[in-house]
Simulated assay, not measured.
Amino acid sequence: MTEAPMKALAGRVALITGSGSGIGRATALRMASLGAVVGVNDLKQEAVAAVVAEIKAAGGAAVAVTRDVSTRDGMREALLGFAKQQGRLDILVNNAAWVRYQSVPDIAPETMERMLNIGFKAIIWGIQAAAEVMDAERGGAIVNVASVAGLVSAKNSIVYSGIKAGVMGITRAAAAELGARNIRVNAVAPSAIPTEGTMRNRNAELDARRVARTPLGRLGTVEDIARAICFLAGDDAGFVSAQVMTVDGGITFTNI
């Protein structure tokens, strides 16, 4: 009788912000299936409860972390509390975001502030808190969710594109500083992925144009992004840091 293969993230403890839906949910499900204990974070308690229940029903381990991570105190409460409860923290996925697309004349201070708090500042606060609790010898992995909008931009996306470009800069700077503590910091940059949160900015005609321009001939899925995140968080990426992995079917760097 042969032993069952070791799961890739067995024994790891991971917190995923904004994991009540979309890419975060898919990442939580995949990490749990790979053996990690997952902290499911979102402000929507019913969404968190549903993801936790789904993970447990599949035989995985998950904990609800319903904290607002858009402030330094909220992020620290979420991450440090979860790490204390589990006795360690190995992986942080900074996925939470709040997005509104506005033309230059229509950019509103309150919209920009909320986008910055959740999509930019929270990543710095998360990295700061994770660096505090990740074991200095064992290290850890931080994966930030950027976007190809930080590389190539469309109209009405000044704030969003600026934030996602900033996330790439945060990733590289954090990797430079935290590498000495064996903490790897990387990012994924998805193309337009169908999720609940992006439906207001999608239509069949636009999606058809995107598919036509994508070398792989389809839109990406939340599972595509989750697989990339789990790779960067795991040992197979043990010598990978300061990287921004575009997960986009080839659309960003080709012209077809």
Rank of each mutant, 00 (worst) to 15 (best):
G81E: 05
G81R: 00
F82N: 09
F82P: 12
A83V: 06
A83M: 07
K84W: 04
Q85S: 13
R88Y: 03
R88P: 01
L89K: 01
D90C: 05
N95C: 14
A97G: 09
W98I: 07
W98P: 02
W98S: 06
V99P: 10
R100S: 13
R100P: 11
R100V: 15
Q102K: 12
S103R: 14
V104L: 12
V104F: 07
D106P: 08
I107K: 01
I107N: 04
E110H: 13
E110L: 12
E110G: 13
T111C: 15
T111I: 15
M112E: 09
R114V: 11
R114S: 12
M115S: 05
M115H: 01
L116G: 03
L116P: 03
I118N: 02
I118W: 02
F120W: 08
F120K: 04
A122I: 06
I123L: 09
I124R: 12
I124A: 13
A129L: 05
A130T: 09
D135P: 07
A136C: 11
E137R: 12
E137F: 07
R138M: 10
G140H: 03
A141M: 01
I142D: 00
V143A: 06
V145K: 03
V145M: 11
V145F: 08
A146M: 02
V148H: 01
A149P: 07
G150K: 02
G150F: 01
L151Y: 11
L151C: 11
V152F: 12
S153T: 13
N156S: 14
N156P: 14
N156T: 15
S157R: 11
I158N: 08
V159A: 04
Y160P: 06
S161K: 04
A165N: 06
G166L: 02
I170A: 02
T171K: 06
T171C: 11
A175Y: 00
A175P: 07
E177W: 02
G179H: 00
G179D: 04
G179S: 03
A180C: 15
A180R: 15
A180F: 15
R181D: 03
N182V: 07
N182K: 13
N182L: 09
N182H: 13
